[in-house]
Nucleic acid binder design. Structure first.
Lengths: 113, 113
DNA sequence: CGGCACGGTAAGTGCTAACTTACGGTAAGT
DNA sequence: ACTTACCGTAAGTTAGCACTTACCGTGCCG
């Protein structure tokens, strides 16, 4: 599916540029390539990656392929990130609490003295 | 700034493993490396990247460096992703409204606070 | 005070992937 | 039917980065 693949997909700067462009509305491959410093085939390959990550969807119109953002993949990314966010907050709160109590350095570590 | 840098940081699988490990609580560099298939220096380098992206924070305890998740970077990522998600939804709604086409797509519209 | 554990940095290597040009296949216009 | 436009794929090159070993500074304990 698309568990963490979305992060891999958005890890590339060119792919993020494509997403940024698609934020303002659907566009064809040629239009996307025209606004980017790379060739059309490169854009096509990036779109393939984004599509496999569920971040974009395609709508064929004649020989032109109109790409648009797909909410599906972004929703998955969002929930992943939300979990991380919650755990980060919990860890932060726990650390702050331990700090307030005492200088406790006791954890479930297997580090022998 | 580190607006999108977080996506770059989370684009690497080893770095995501580190984050996953830190979800359960703080850990030292040696502990992190012990649970990963890479060497300690590699972990150190990854932690540097994560720290520069604002995703982790350090707490020096003697010669040991205790790393933990930092809510700051995740908050930034979250808002970035929220904007993208909203635009994706808007684009989808506009497209669906313009045409009644059925692409066999299946997405849920859950909108948290 | 001398050895030891911990971890960050330097230098070098290999593999992944982003990019290129070239080609083929499909749909629309004339 | 021929031509033109649009796009995906193949093959090959190159640049970046993840990883390694080696080294050094720092803080604990004997």
């Amino acid at each position: 599916m698309v568990p963490y693949g979305g992060f891999e997909a958005l890890g590339d700067a060119t792919r993020r540029s494509i997403v940024e462009r698609l934020r303002h509305g659907p566009a064809s491959v040629g239009e996307l390539a025209a606004g980017l410093p790379v060739s059309r085939p490169a854009v096509s390959q990036h779109l393939k990656v984004l599509a496999e990550a569920g971040l974009v969807a395609v709508n064929a119109a004649g020989t032109r392929r109109i790409y648009r953002l797909a909410p599906h993949g972004f929703a998955a990314l969002r929930s992943e990130l939300d979990q991380l966010w919650n755990d980060a907050l919990a860890a932060f709160a726990a650390a702050a609490e331990a700090e307030g109590e005492a200088d406790g350095d006791d954890e479930r570590h297997e580090r022998p003295a």
